[in-house]
């Protein structure tokens, strides 16, 4: 009776021992050395494999990081925190860079822009752009069929009344939305304090007035008031040069169409951008509510 148990146990046990010995030898013989730092860096990364850094995944980023010891390599979703951590693992100082953040260059929600027709096609901006671009008259603005919202893996974009809005806190700066937008109205800007002209229309002021309540009419007032010469003006559209802009709020106050949006402004800039006299009526403008989020 005992043999019925003993022999199979001995046989299988022996077989296991022999095979494990072979495996042990093979593991020794064919071992590939990997810097343990790679595993440590990989561990510190978010491991979302989003590709925002420009590498196919977190592992490739870790390999390249350890190899090049280049602290300018940046993981946008991880942000500052991860940058410090991975630099520390290599005994380096993190470079001061930060992930950019997406800005929507349009304020034309459904109630603010003129619309005609009825759209019965696919619920996708790129598909709509193929057939005359949905119902909004403006040929430059947000189409409102949420391609960017679907492209965003971090839930940082939501559609409000046919207009994409970015939650600056959730945005990791991967740029997936920029690629998804057929109108090219999403751009990356500096994190923290930023001011931008939320319009993409190159139409004349008259044409813009005809279809949008909040579009840039090319009056150049912002260009004139800017103390830092940070307003570029081209083809009926103002654009902020983020290198020069000090976010003083002067342009926001000067814009007759409330097209310029500021986020993370100082109290002084806020007071200048939205003078107290108007604060009662227009205090809750887009600029301020955005400012609260960042």
């Amino acid at each position: 009776m005992v043999t019925n148990v003993l022999y199979p146990a001995l046989f299988l046990g022996g077989l296991g021992a022999v095979l494990s010995f072979i495996l042990l030898l093979a593991a020794r013989k064919f071992a590939v050395y990997e810097d343990p730092l790679v595993a440590a860096v990989l561990d510190a990364l978010p491991n979302a494999n989003c590709g925002a850094c420009g590498y196919p995944g977190c592992r490739q980023f870790a390999l390249e990081y350890v190899k090049s010891r280049d602290t300018n390599m940046f993981c946008p979703p991880g942000g500052r925190e991860v940058a410090v951590k991975v630099a520390g693992l290599l005994g380096l100082e993190a470079s001061p860079g930060e992930a950019p953040v997406a800005m929507v260059l349009c304020l034309g929600s459904r109630d603010k822009t003129k619309q005609i027709g009825r759209y019965e096609g696919l619920d996708d901006c790129r598909a709509a752009a193929l057939i005359d671009g949905g119902t909004k008259v403006c040929p430059y603005g947000c189409l409102g069929y949420a391609s960017c919202e679907r492209a965003c893996d971090y839930g940082a974009i939501c559609m409000e009344d046919g207009l994409a809005r970015v939650d600056g806190e959730k945005c990791v700066g991967c740029g997936a939305c920029v690629a998804a937008c057929p109108r090219g109205i999403i751009r990356m800007g500096p994190r923290g304090t930023r001011v931008w002209v939320a319009c993409s229309s190159h139409d004349t002021g008259k044409a813009v007035r005809g279809y949008c309540e909040v579009g840039c009419i090319g009056c150049k007032r912002c260009v004139k008031v800017c103390p830092d010469d940070a307003m570029q003006f081209d083809d009926f559209l103002a654009r902020v040069d983020h290198e020069k802009c000090t976010a003083c709020g002067a342009c926001i106050a000067a814009c007759p169409r409330d097209t310029i949006v500021g986020v993370g402004l100082t109290a002084e800039a806020l007071a200048r951008a939205y003078p107290p006299a108007e604060a009662g009526s227009e205090g809750e403008s887009d600029g301020e509510s955005d400012g609260g989020r960042s």
């Binding site: 019965e120 598909a127 193929l130």
Partner: peptide, 8 residues
């Protein structure tokens, strides 16, 4: 909307 999808 097959044609629209295919065109897309």
């Amino acid at each position: 909307r097959l044609v629209h999808s295919i065109r897309f």
